[in-house]
Nucleic acid binder design. Sequence first.
DNA 1: GCCAACGTTGGC
DNA 2: GCCAACGTTGGC
Length: 152
Amino acid sequence: MNYWLFKTEPSECSIDDFAHNPTQAIVWEGVRNYQARNYLRDDVAIGDQVLIYHSSCKLIGVAGIAEVVRAAYADPSQFDSRSVYYDAKSIAAQPRWVAVDLRFVSKLPAVITLDKIKSSAKMAELPLVQKGSRLSVMPVTAQQWRDLLALQ
DNA sequence: GCCAACGTTGGC
DNA sequence: GCCAACGTTGGC
């Protein structure tokens, strides 16, 4: 079982969307970066635990936890010409992008802010806080997972 | 809204 | 395969 951090803009999909549909599988689509795609495709597995991170918003940071309930499959949005995630260059026989499904686990009582994460020496190796890192899907070690949630 | 940093594209 | 131009990310 692996640990991950997934970024999302809460205006698109927030921890509250999970919390309001706690038994429903949420399609995690729209990842359009190859390194993030490779993690999704090759390493994200059913049962993995995911930190849901809110970016580009008022309160930036880790807002909750979700669990992977379906491993990688062709991201349907890449073939939908009305979607903002549409990719005209992706062909059905060889889909370029993948999605996974997540399900709600918990909402943290308070967001663990990026500020707090940055100020923790134990988080120095987390890709999130490394200069210039823009990965939207990143691995988290078991130790980092524990240490990060202990920042609450 | 700004802009630094990074990724992608496409001409050569 | 290089690299300039352009697009995107995401904190501030």
